[in-house]
Design a protein around this nucleic acid. Structure first.
Length: 1120
RNA sequence: AGAUCCGUAGCUCAGCCUGGUUAGAGCACUACACUGAUAAUGUAGGGGUCAGCAGUUCAAAUCUGCUCGGGUCUACCA
């Protein structure tokens, strides 16, 4: 190795990115980083597949930075980290995109366009932005294997999904059932929650709402209280059309209800009603309570009422009531035809009941509400669906038969059936209040018509069967932040329902279940296919058994594409010889991604061993919005299939908001284009900003100003430190060829920065291990800025350019080099380009590593022997003292170039005195002072002040604390000294007062000093500095000389001289300064590399300079 | 509606777990200084009801409860 360290004009991060990217490409640096770790323990990472039919955004950059840095870090730590990429290719967004592009709707599929063509189109567009994704992946420096990604639409992938499903089926976890889903009668289709969350679907509408009165049966009435007259349960609904399907009334078990005697406002008949006590005021006027019942008649506006009795909800359980609206279609016989042992028309209990609105009693129609369905099933109410899929009443619902429950057909003559139901209730003394009610209700995003909740057949995974195990295993997962695991995710698990897999779509993974038609007894046979081979076998078998045209297109080669429409063309045969058709559903795309640990390897058909080595993952990371998405489905399938977690650590990162804190959305136009950002600031600054600005799980307010700051402050400073190093190392030819000088043989300042460096390694390693990259990054920043650049380099500057190339200088070079080299490695996970660039700049000269990339090196290890905490502390002391002295100089307007004679620093104890003595040279140099006088503990020169230590005393003293603090503050030197030596009783008169003695020891006080008469003093905490500001004649002269040197140095620099150029200097004679310059001539010449310094009466060509208010003309001539 | 995260200087964030008496840093602004590495740095200045209320405590930014505001996820129901 040889040559020079490359020096640069200025820092250009984007071009560094480009240069390094090209190098990586050429040298296969990524592939090599994995190959180099062959045989090392694996660290397993799963890539959550993005969907390539949308453009990547800046929020993708943050989660991928996080993933990338962990993988890079682990690689450097000696693990082999394979990162298989993946693409999520199925799902509704793809379908919607295609429909928009082709200008069609779902209804057109099968008529205007065949399913085959439609799916072909989906397959084409799904990778539309793959190029853009690949580009951002590279540009941001995300190392992931894009050459062999898993793709969810490929046959092999789907085959594994089928295998998973068939395993679940075998375990009895896959079943068909009814669930209540949003359904659009106008469009004739179920809607997903995604569709329901389209903008504008929830609208404020006015509906006819009814408070209906359900008459309590005579038998049950007695259970409440013995009283005269009819009693009713009041329940409210905004959808009166569901009332004929009513099968139960739900009350909250802990809600208080009362029985109220009053009159029906419409029929004026005397009634008794039950409702929640908290809602009485909604229906009754306070002034009418216990009003005049005797004289009530139809003309009286204010209806009298009184509470007869009250009870809590659980006491109402199982009360029976008469059916509200009996028809032919909803008789008890009809109900039991569907649910043989149903027990409807009862009061049941439900936790979801509130007293926010309504009556505190919930009308329950199991077919038309998810809660209703759940509670109905639990209480065996049965189910009635008196409305068909077109949204109209079926036959047998009296005068309402065949009427649409909402105006789905835009019929101008439509009469609202809800109003008619309300009228009927009024006439029958079954309505207490009918009114228009404005509420927020979901609408179908395509037809703009209100949706209804409707029971649809669907296939489910019985996740509830393994709920306890999922909860248990979740506790072993390391969640970052932990609260997401216990809170959002843990809570979600606790309230888990079975996983509804079914989707009525076209482009997705088909459910591999074939079934026969139901026979007369409602029985049927079904088969769940678990592999292509099995399907092909069944295809042949069916053809043989059923004969004719059965599966004729699939007999030769078997099935070639596992999507619709092909799978639907296949008929299988049941064990008893009946034809079976596939159920038409596709599965939830979340199943696709949740099964990626298996499907990415085409397990169990191939790669069995690979799979075993790569399950479960050590680490995954995605946005927090995936908590109930990917994180959930991974976990569910891991537990269901293998009784295992799917990942050991999961980091969920927060959202990226714009700088005003708004969510980024195309609609608002505040989306940050990651390409623009990375092109203008470079990937490193962007990554560094994203990681260090806020913890990954906090939402990040993205502001390019922040990136600029990172670029300037962190990368700029580090770059300059390198430039400084390169400048002088090139002059001296330092290439680390000398033996490594033992740290304890180096000057104290070197020992200090190396101690800090090792402390930094410790800190960074700890935080990376804890998945706290923000803390790690900030620690690196702190080191570069505060320690390395602005203290070490600042103080050592002269060591690099003064003197011969021997011990001290080599120490300085080796030390600074080691710092830079180590920093490269520490920062490499977060800023991979810059780190590699810097590493190569250093290493190509020194050749200390055989590696071509920092990413192939090992992460630095801590050298505990070099860490000297006391040294770090006293250096901090030196910095604090210097800073105090500088503030004093500022206060009295004495610039640093003016030397001063002396500073006094009182030490509070011997160890502090010792520390200051050890760093006094640094203080002297930094603040340009000749002597540092450390005043010992016993001096009388200063006045001491004591402050109570609240931490130790507070516990002992309690309420006397304030008094004691006052006492302590007023102690004099003698008392403080006594406390320090042996302790003092603060309340000597304690015996007389009958108190406990309060003994103060040295640890109970903090001693400070406050006054040194005749000196300029500054105090900061326990530190006091007293500066002697008298300037003697000699000091003044030296100050002049230094000022002069500074001016000449500036001239050298401005004139573009090289560092080593020698010069001749001529100066105009000047009465005020001449004596100073002559006295310090040797010093001056040495500093400015002058061979001569000559005074002339007049200088014709030269620069006018000003030195301590004196004007001079100077000419500087380069020699040779 | 439920869960969760967040709320500290004009802005970005520390500090909170483990309570301790002047609440810190950076950016931005102003002035001065330092510099033969520096787009850096130092010193000084202005800038805070630590979202609000209540509680626990000798002592609360810190612990507890409630409220308000913002984000996200889930749900949207009589």
């Amino acid at each position: 190795m040889s040559g020079k360290y490359t020096e640069y004009q200025q820092l250009n991060l984007p071009s560094i990115s480009e240069e390094i990217l090209a190098k990586w490409k050429q040298e296969d640096t990524f592939e090599k980083s994995i190959a180099l770790r062959e045989g090392c323990p694996p660290f397993v990472f799963y890539e959550g597949p993005p969907s390539a039919n949308g453009m990547p955004g800046i929020h993708h950059v943050i989660s991928r930075t996080l993933k990338d840095l962990v993988c890079r870090y682990k690689t450097m730590q000696g693990f082999q980290v394979k990162r298989k990429g993946g693409w999520d290719t199925h799902g509704l967004p793809v379908e919607l995109g295609v429909e928009k592009e082709l200008g069609i709707t779902k209804e057109d599929i099968g008529t205007k366009i065949s399913i085959e063509e439609y799916n072909k189109k989906c397959r084409e567009v799904v990778m539309r932005f793959k190029d853009k994704w690949d580009e951002i992946t590279q540009k941001m420096g995300y190392w992931v294997d894009l050459k062999n990604p898993y793709v969810t639409f490929e046959n092999n992938y789907i085959e594994t999904l089928w295998w998973c499903l068939s395993e679940l089926y075998k375990k009895g976890y896959l079943y068909e059932s009814v669930s209540i889903q949003p359904y659009s009668p106008a469009a004739g289709t179920g809607l997903s929650s995604h569709e329901l969350n389209q903008p504008g679907t929830y609208k404020d509408v006015k509906d006819t709402s009814a408070v209906a009165m359900f008459k309590i049966s005579e038998k049950s009435k007695i259970k409440i209280k013995n009283f005269d007259g009819e009693a009713f349960l009041m329940a409210w609904t905004t959808t009166p059309w569901t009332l004929p399907s009513n099968l139960g009334l739900t009350v909250g078990p802990n809600i208080e209800y009362c029985l109220v005697q009053t009159f029906n406002p419409y029929t004026h008949l005397p009634i008794n009603v039950i409702l929640a006590k908290a809602l009485l005021s909604k229906y009754f006027k306070a002034e009418a309570e216990n009003g005049d019942f005797e004289s009530y008649n139809a003309e009286v506006k204010i209806i009298p009422w009184k509470i007869i009795t009250s009870f809590i909800g659980s006491e109402l359980a199982d009360l029976e009531y008469e059916q509200l609206l009996p028809f032919e279609a909803n008789t008890i016989e009809k109900i039991r035809e569907i649910t043989p042992d149903a027990q409807p028309f009862r009061v049941i209990l439900g936790d979801f009941v509130t007293t926010e609105d309504g009556t505190g009693i919930v009308h329950t129609a199991p077919a038309f509400g998810a809660d209703d369905f759940k509670v109905g099933k639990k209480n065996n109410l049965g189910i009635l669906t008196l409305v068909d899929k077109q949204g109209k009443f079926i036959e047998g619902v009296g005068e309402f038969s065949n009427r649409y429950v909402k105006n789905y057909k835009d019929d101008p003559t439509y009469v609202d059936v809800n109003v008619d139901i309300a009228v009927k209730l009024k006439l029958q003394n079954r309505a207490f209040k009918i009114e228009k009610y404005e509420h927020n209700y979901p609408h179908c995003w395509r037809t703009d018509k209100p949706i209804i909740y409707y029971p649809l057949d669907a296939w489910f995974i019985k996740t509830t069967a393994v709920k306890d195990r999922m909860v248990e295993l979740n506790k072993t997962i390391n969640w970052k932040p932990a609260s997401t695991g216990t809170g959002r995710f843990g809570n979600w698990l606790e309230n888990m329902v079975d996983w509804n897999l079914s989707r009525s779509r076209f482009w997705g993974t088909p459910l591999p279940i074939w079934k026969t038609k139901e026979d007369a007894d409602g029985n049927r046979e079904e088969k769940c296919i678990g592999s292509v081979e099995e399907l092909n076998k069944e295809i042949k078998k069916a053809a043989e058994v059923l004969g004719g045209q059965t599966n004729k297109n699939y007999l030769h080669q078997g099935i070639l594409d596992l999507h619709k429409p092909y799978v639907d063309e296949i008929t299988l045969v049941s064990d008893s010889g009946k034809p079976m058709k596939r159920v038409s559903d596709l599965i939830d795309v979340w199943f696709d991604s949740g099964a990626m640990p298996y499907a990415q390897w085409h397990f169990p058909f191939e790669n069995k061993e690979t799979f075993q080595k790569n399950f479960p993952a050590d680490f995954i990371a995605e946005g927090v919005d995936q908590t109930r998405g990917w994180f959930y489905t991974l976990h569910a399938l891991g537990v269901l299939l293998f009784d295992s977690v799917a990942y050991k650590t999961v980091v969920s990162n927060g959202l990226v908001l714009d700088k005003a804190g708004n969510k980024m959305s195309k609609r608002l136009g505040n989306v940050v284009d990651p390409f623009v950002t990375i092109d203008s600031f470079g990937a490193d600054a962007t990554r560094w900003y994203l990681i260090t600005n806020a913890s990954p799980w906090d939402s990040l307010k993205f502001d390019v100003e922040g990136i600029k700051e990172v670029q300037r402050k962190f990368f700029g400073t580090l770059y300059n430190t390198y430039q400084f190093f390169a400048l002088y190392a090139n002059v001296d030819g330092f290439s680390f060829k000398e033996n490594y000088i033992p740290v304890n043989e180096r000057p104290e300042i070197d020992q200090w920065i190396l101690s800090s460096l090792n402390s930094l390694i410790k800190n960074v390693q700890y935080n990376f291990d804890a998945y706290e990259p923000t803390q790690a990054g900030r620690a690196i920043e702190e080191f570069v800025d505060a320690h390395l650049s602005n203290w070490y380099v600042r103080l050592c500057r002269r060591r690099f350019w003064k003197g011969e190339y021997e011990h001290d200088k080599i120490c300085a070079y080796q030390t600074l080099y080691e710092c830079l080299e180590t920093l490269c490695k520490l920062m490499a996970p977060v800023a991979p380009f810059f780190a590699d660039w810097l590493f190569n700049n250093l290493n190509k000269v020194s050749g200390r590593f055989n590696n071509n990339s920092v990413h192939h090196t090992d992460f630095p290890t801590i050298n505990e022997a070099v860490i000297d905490i006391d040294l770090e502390k006293r250096m901090q002391l030196a910095q604090d003292i210097s800073s105090l002295i500088l503030s004093l100089r500022k206060k009295v307007n004495l610039k640093v170039r003016q030397p001063l004679q002396k500073v006094f620093i009182p030490a509070l104890d011997a160890s502090m005195a010792g520390r200051i003595k050890k760093v006094e040279n640094i203080i002297k140099a930094e603040t340009n002072i000749k002597e540092v006088d450390v005043l010992s503990v016993e001096n009388d020169f200063i006045k001491k002040k004591a402050k109570a230590n609240f931490k130790t005393l507070g516990k002992k003293l309690g309420t006397k604390m304030k008094w004691a603090a006052g006492q302590i503050a007023s102690l004099d030197n003698a008392a403080i000294d006594k406390i320090l030596e042996e302790g003092v009783i603060l309340n000597p008169e304690y015996k007389n007062n009958g108190e406990e003695p309060i003994i103060i020891h040295s640890e109970d006080i903090e001693v400070t000093t406050d006054e040194i008469p005749g000196y300029e003093i500054a105090v900061n905490g326990q530190l006091t500095v007293a500066l002697d500001i008298t300037i003697s004649g000699d000091l003044k002269k030296e100050g002049d000389a230094r000022e002069f040197v500074n001016r000449v140095q500036n001239l050298r620099k401005d004139s573009g001289f090289n560092l080593t150029d020698r010069i001749d200097v001529t100066v105009s004679e000047n009465a005020g300064l001449q004596a100073s310059l002559i006295q310090y001539k040797d010093y001056i010449c040495a500093e400015i590399l002058a061979d001569s310094l000559v005074f002339l009466p007049e200088i014709k060509e030269g620069f006018d300079i000003e030195v301590n208010d004196a004007l001079l003309t100077v000419n500087v001539l380069k020699k040779g």
